[in-house]
Simulated scan of single mutants.
Amino acid sequence: MAEHAEYTEITYRTADRIATVALNRPHARNGYTVRMADELADALGRADADDDVRVVVLTGEGTDFSVGADLSQGGFDFDSTEPGTQWQEPAGRVSKRVFTMNKPVIAAIRGAAIGGGITITLSADYRLAATDARFGFVFVRRGIYPEGASAWFLPKLVGLGRAMDWMISGRVFDAEEAHAAGLVQSVHEPERLLDAAYELAADLAANTAPVSVAVTRQLLYRMSNMDSPFPVHEVDSQLIASIATNPDSVEGVLSFLQKRPPEFRLRVGSDLPAFLPWKED
């Protein structure tokens, strides 16, 4: 397992085509800071640019994912921006980076996932929770506002009514309620949580085509909110027409017929279709 030591508030390691990005301030229950936000965004970008990485597991060291903003440090420095740039709140720096990923992201959450400690995971492809996980969009109980673009992501995951309940009340709720509402895909005993996340990551790495995953992930995020299906159909038509010259399509069919694991050759870094309307983002 390759581990990179240049981060101070997270850890980043790779093994078996999986990158693990972990919040690493367990003494502060992974309280969220600007440095942590920027390190997370950098690590996610590193994983996204590495064609040897197929899946990212996002988790926290210790017994909590994150209790949210570390208020003990006096809050965030709102003036520390480059001249001519607009300040970007720290949770959104990460949720936006996850949104633009070409690799699937699996969040493995145990203990507290409060405020920014849950909003940074809303753009992940999967959220797996431990039975001891506790969630809270507690902003109104602190006199502040939802961040991480959570007012956009959360209703798409659980519906507007449930999002209103959780955000307007600011109450804390358990893993069972989160699972029933669709916020998390599955619930596991704490000691089994990471194993479940890695089993899912290994399946995705072994059996899915990286370019196909990248395109499909962004199709869902970028085009599911269009006013009609017609623009989506236009992109679909270009994608399906490209199958004739797509070696991964041939390999997918052959491996299925020959009952063997696929060996997909196309890589996200070089082989994404040039006509994707969001590619320049």
Rank of each mutant, 00 (worst) to 15 (best):
E176T: 15
E176L: 02
A181I: 04
A181L: 02
G182I: 03
G182T: 04
V184R: 02
V184W: 01
Q185F: 11
S186T: 11
V187A: 03
H188T: 06
P190H: 13
P190Q: 12
R192Y: 02
L193V: 02
A196W: 06
Y198N: 03
A201P: 10
A202Y: 03
A202W: 06
A206E: 12
A206G: 06
N207T: 15
A209K: 07
A209M: 09
A209T: 12
P210A: 00
P210K: 06
V211N: 11
V213H: 06
R217A: 12
L219P: 04
L220N: 14
Y221S: 15
Y221I: 15
M223Q: 13
M223G: 09
S224M: 05
N225K: 14
M226L: 15
M226R: 14
P229F: 08
P231Q: 07
P231K: 04
V232E: 08
V232Y: 13
H233T: 14
E234Q: 04
V235A: 04
V235F: 05
S237C: 09
L239R: 01
I243Y: 15
A244K: 04
A244V: 08
N246Y: 09
D248Q: 03
V250N: 14
V250L: 13
V250Y: 02
V250E: 15
E251G: 05
G252H: 00
V253T: 08
S255T: 02
S255C: 01
Q258H: 13
Q258N: 11
P262V: 04
